[in-house]
Each structure stands twice: as structure tokens, then as C-alpha cells.
Amino acid sequence: MSLAFIFPGQGSQAVGMGAELAEAFASAREVFQEVDDALGQNLSRLMREGPEDQLTLTENAQPALMAVSLAVMRVLERDFSAGIGKAAFVAGHSLGEYSALAAAGALSLSDAARLLRVRGQAMQRALPVGAGAMASLIGPKTDVALAEEAAAEGAKFGVCVVANDNNQGNVVISGDKAAVGAAIEKAKALGARAILLNVSAPFHCPLMQPAADEMAEALASARIIAPAAPVVTNVTARPTLDPEAIRGLLVDQVTGRVRWRESMLWLAGEGGITRFAEAGSGKVLAGMAKRIAPDAAAVSLNSPADLETFAATV
């Protein structure tokens, strides 16, 4: 059975995430301490106790989600001998790509934490709060073609693009507030439902170019080595082992589309993956995997019991 580890993105955070792992495993506590030390912040306490509004801030949520994912991976490696060596590929949704790279050894844990702090802050300040918006287009008629048609209508009023092609029935658009509003009306006329997302900035669209410029500077000095397993990247939906390609694609990712549906289809097709394991907080990606690649198995690895059950099968 060919396995891919997949790593969640923003929106999967929740107060209390990682607490069970930290209580059960010293190796998880080590990860949380390393991230705290790298950031000079007691992020692990914020993850454990909240408040939720502080954890949800982009600059906190991004490194926090990565920390939980890497705690899962370190426990699998150290305590169950079921870590990255069992994977044919890794992939991560948006910020989860950093988790995937750190899990595969391309980035150090501390560098990933620091880069995600910069990324979160840069995305937050790329434009004033409230100037942009994101909306999830959902329903059985929703696909990327419908979303692109809706975004094209929105683009008459400002920047509006498809930001996340998650799966059939779930595509996210992003851009200027007025443009996204117009796109929502078009999407409804085309038979989709639309939900404005509670986000602080319009991610994965050209309005994030100032953040991409900041990330280019931060990534220029980051040490990136070849990952232990190929990383299927958001921008290309194809695998790479090339450190310099990874560096450039992480910059492109800030303004580019998250091609998650295409990535999963490639993994389940040409990649030969028959099992997806979502490492980290929540169960969003495992749910998507079941919709995109119904012939593959998909599990979420959150709790000590999840990890023990999974490790017994690989």
C-alpha cells in the first residue's frame, strides 16, 4: 500500500490542539518547545489554552498548525517507527506545504516556524483589513470552471481569482471585496452556494504580492535541502525534490492557486497512492481525499490512539 502524508492548512486550528499528544509523548513536547524557542513565544500555551481569537490570528495559526503536524510526525518516527520513511510522497494545503517540507527534512523545524511567522505577518499587512475578501463556492454544481466564470465576472470590479481548488463542490475565490461580492452573485446565478469566509486577508491572489516579496527575501537565506520524499507542490500539482525549485514555488504559492484537487488526483493516479494520512489538527484533508480519490483510504492522525492504530498498519 503506497502512502502519502498530507498536512492541513489554516482553518484547522482549534484551542486544545496537540494537548493530548503533549501529555502522552515527550517527543511531541520537544517539538512544541522547539517552536516556542524559535519564535520567542509561548505558542504552545496559546494552542493549549487560547484565547481562540489570538490563536486564529494568521501569524499564530500558521506556525501552530505546523507544530502540531510535526509533533504527529515526530511521535510516529520516535515512538512507533512509522514516520516519513514510510511515505512515497508528501503534500500540504497552503501553509501545510511548509509542514510537509519540514516533515520531509527539507526545512528545519525552527526555520519552518520562523518562516511561517514571517508569512503570517506579511499576509496580514499586505493590504488593509476589510479591503479584500474570500468566499467558498459550494454545492454539487460547483467546480473550478464555474468558479472561474464567477471570478471573471468579479474581475470587472477589481482583483478576483480562484484561490483554492479544493475538490468538486468546494472552490474558494479571493480578491477585492467588491469584486468577490460580484463573483458571489454570479456564482449563485450559476447554481452554486457561496459563503463569505472569516479571514483577515484575501489569500492566494495577486493582492498578496507584497507578502510574496517579503517571503522571497526571507526564503532567499533559508536553508533548504532535498526532502526525504518528493513534495507535491500547491502551485504545480506535481512532485519535486529540487531545493531551488521548492524555494521559488514557496514564493509563488503566496499569490498562486492552491491546486489541491489536482494534487490529490495526481497522487492517486500517476503517483500510485492508495492511502492518505492527514498529519495534524482536524480532519478536513482526509474528508477531501475521500471525495477526490474515493478508491484510496484516508485517515486523520490527531490523537495518541489514532497514531497507535495507524502505526500498526504500516
Rank of each mutant, 00 (worst) to 15 (best):
residue 228 A to Y: 01
residue 241 L to Q: 15
residue 175 G to Y: 06
residue 288 M to R: 01
residue 68 V to H: 15
residue 130 G to D: 09
residue 199 V to T: 15
residue 265 L to Y: 00
residue 107 L to Y: 14
residue 155 A to Y: 01
residue 188 K to D: 00
residue 226 A to G: 09
residue 167 N to F: 07
residue 185 E to M: 03
residue 114 R to P: 05
residue 87 A to W: 05
residue 76 L to P: 10
residue 126 A to Q: 07
residue 132 G to T: 13
residue 233 T to V: 07
residue 232 V to R: 00
residue 237 A to P: 08
residue 215 M to F: 09
residue 105 G to C: 02
residue 305 A to G: 03
residue 28 A to M: 06
residue 90 V to C: 13
residue 164 N to T: 12
residue 34 E to C: 10
residue 25 F to C: 08
residue 76 L to S: 12
residue 294 P to Y: 14
residue 77 E to Y: 01
residue 157 F to I: 00
residue 229 A to E: 00
residue 157 F to V: 00
residue 264 M to F: 11
residue 183 A to V: 12
residue 64 A to S: 10
residue 138 I to N: 09
residue 238 R to E: 05
residue 90 V to R: 02
residue 305 A to S: 09
residue 106 A to M: 07
residue 9 G to W: 13
residue 14 A to R: 15
residue 65 L to W: 06
residue 215 M to S: 07
residue 242 D to K: 09
residue 216 A to L: 07
residue 144 V to W: 06
residue 36 D to V: 12
residue 46 L to P: 03
residue 41 Q to R: 08
residue 287 G to R: 04
residue 112 A to F: 03
residue 211 A to D: 02
residue 151 A to S: 14
residue 65 L to Q: 02
residue 292 I to K: 01
residue 81 S to P: 00
residue 7 F to H: 04
residue 180 V to Y: 02
residue 186 K to G: 10
residue 278 E to S: 11
residue 184 I to D: 02
residue 26 A to K: 09
residue 186 K to D: 03
residue 91 A to L: 14
residue 164 N to C: 13
residue 75 V to T: 05
residue 242 D to W: 07
residue 234 N to R: 12
residue 36 D to F: 11
residue 206 P to I: 13
residue 198 N to Q: 14
residue 19 A to D: 12
residue 243 P to E: 07
residue 230 P to R: 03
residue 225 I to L: 03
residue 210 P to K: 08
residue 182 A to D: 06
residue 145 A to M: 06
residue 35 V to C: 02
residue 308 E to C: 10
residue 260 W to F: 11
residue 171 V to S: 01
residue 152 A to S: 15
residue 216 A to P: 09
residue 49 E to D: 14
residue 266 W to R: 10
residue 62 Q to W: 10
residue 223 R to P: 15
residue 240 T to H: 00
residue 193 R to Q: 15
residue 282 G to K: 04
residue 92 G to P: 11
residue 70 L to S: 01
residue 125 R to L: 13
residue 142 T to V: 11
residue 257 R to E: 13
residue 18 G to F: 08
residue 6 I to C: 03
residue 85 G to W: 01
residue 250 L to I: 04
residue 143 D to M: 12
residue 143 D to Q: 11
